[in-house]
């Protein structure tokens, strides 16, 4: 399962790689990283249908996570990847917007990686 992680914090890459060290090692999960919404779209355009799940931060400079979500849900139909939104602000407004735009799940920071792992495994 290929998972695209989108966050403007570059250190998430190291973090994810260590948190899912075993899953990556076993080939169970494959992580790709993009550090902005634009970069994520560029990757998605180049590797259509590869990513099954997209984990995206909402607060990013430039294209926000919600905009990215909008793009993905409107333009990638076959089959639309699952999109999980992550934000530091667990407020109702962002949650509702994300839901309306078709977000499949909603995570708040700090991310509970054990919970995330369970979720990813059920999707798989």
């Amino acid at each position: 399962m290929k998972i695209l992680v989108v966050d403007d914090e570059t250190d998430v890459q190291v973090l994810f790689e260590q948190r899912f060290r075993k899953e990556i090692k076993s080939g169970e999960m494959q992580f790709v990283f993009a550090f902005s919404g634009e970069e994520a779209l560029t990757y998605l355009n180049a590797h259509e249908q590869e990513a099954v799940l997209i984990l995206s931060d909402i607060n990013m400079p430039g294209m926000s996570g919600l905009e990215l979500l909008d793009h993905i849900k409107q333009k990638y139909h076959k089959p639309p990847p699952l999109v999980m939104m992550i934000t530091a602000y667990g407020d109702a407004e962002n949650f509702n917007t994300a839901k309306e735009l078709g977000a499949d799940d909603f995570l708040t920071k700090p991310v509970d990686f054990n919970q995330l792992r369970e979720k990813l495994k059920t999707i798989n």
Binding site: E9, L15, Q18, R21, A88, Y89, P110, V111, F113
Partner: peptide, 25 residues
């Protein structure tokens, strides 16, 4: 600022947690 502090703190927490796991491993 809350957001900005939250992010590094998350990293601190996550990296320390993951480090503990790594030490076990």
């Amino acid at each position: 600022i809350a957001h900005e502090i939250q992010n590094p703190l998350n990293f601190v927490n996550n990296f320390s947690e993951v480090s503990a796991e790594l030490v076990k491993e």
